[in-house]
């Protein structure tokens, strides 16, 4: 008994607006992309014949295949870095910081930037990484380098640094959640069963946080794969990943090519998420 009856029509009607909204604004558009990617002809009209020509044309271009591969390599690299970094930070914040005050303060310092605009944060990397930027100044000040490093900005290095900064929280957040849900007694039980800390970590903590790691990796995967903002801001349009290609085709009014790349992006994402679900059952989280 609550303010809503089980299986009542009222529940259905309450659910309807949000469901319709999502169907109209997300599901239908995504299906349309698939359809458009199969259009023959040249006009924008529902009467175009269905064909796989667009895919054939796109996939026969060696450069585009390279770009897909390149995007995947970049994504895998960022996943690896944010994964390790995010786990270390999550472990430190939840397990190692003893004082609750410090934990909250550090956690806020970690999370607050996430509440601000990604675009602004990406732009902020330009003066940070530039020739006279803070990073070069700092490195020169501590004597690590003699001359400013040009290659920070408008390079893959710069893009990667910005992406790591932007997406580590995504990798870390679910791990924090999982670590918090492990009762301290489990760790202690393992220790009284003769397991030294490193074994406790491998046999108890790591397996129990695995769902968090996987979810974090999925989030980073989805975001880096479709990322184009960091590339345009920090990369200065010198480099392109899949997301940039979509934008490029769209701005060139090549709607079919845009759709093709979009569908490929979607497929990659689907493949990634399916793979992740095989590793771990997301529905089990919290159970």
């Amino acid at each position: 008994m609550s303010t809503i009856r089980l299986r009542s029509p009222a529940a259905f009607w309450l659910a309807l607006p949000a469901g319709l909204w999502m169907a109209l604004a997300v599901v239908l558009p995504v299906l349309l992309i698939v359809w458009v990617s199969l259009w023959g002809g040249t006009s924008v009209s529902p009467n175009n014949p269905i064909t796989f020509d667009n895919y054939q044309r796109f996939l026969s271009n060696q450069n585009y295949l390279w770009l897909i591969g390149d995007t995947l390599v970049q994504t895998a690299m960022i996943m690896a870095i944010t994964g390790v970094l995010g786990y270390c930070i999550a472990y430190f914040l939840t397990v190692k910081v003893a004082s609750p005050g410090w934990r909250v303060a550090l956690f806020l310092a970690f999370v607050i930037p996430f509440w601000t605009s990604t675009l602004i944060r990406a732009i902020a990397f330009v003066p940070f990484l530039g020739v006279n930027g803070l990073l070069n100044q700092a490195l020169m000040a501590i004597g690590l380098i003699e001359r400013p490093i040009q290659a920070f900005l408008y390079s893959r290095l710069g893009i990667s640094m910005a992406q790591v900064s932007l997406y580590t929280l995504l990798a870390s957040g679910p791990v924090v959640y999982m670590l918090n849900s492990i009762p301290p007694a489990l760790r202690e039980a393992a220790m009284t069963l003769k397991a030294p800390p490193i074994i406790v970590f491998w046999r108890i903590i790591l397996p129990l946080t695995l769902p968090g790691i996987v979810i974090g990796q999925v989030l980073v995967f989805l975001n880096v794969l479709a990322d184009f903002i960091t590339v345009t801001t920090v990369g200065g349009n010198k480099l392109a990943f899949l997301g940039n290609l979509i934008l490029l085709f769209y701005e060139g009014s090549q709607i079919r090519a845009t759709a093709v790349v979009s569908v490929l992006l979607m497929l990659l994402m689907l493949a990634g998420v399916t793979l992740a679900l095989r590793v771990v059952d997301i529905r089990k989280i919290g159970g």
């Binding site: 009762p183 007694a185 489990l186 202690e188 039980a189 393992a190 220790m191 009284t192 069963l193 003769k194 397991a195 030294p196 108890i204 397996p207 129990l208």
Partner: peptide, 20 residues
């Protein structure tokens, strides 16, 4: 000495079974 080097075992209040 650490717990893993002592000749003891322990039973915890909520049993602390490893869920996995």
């Amino acid at each position: 000495e650490p717990p893993w080097k002592r000749d003891i075992a322990m039973m915890f209040q909520d049993f602390a079974l490893f869920p996995h």
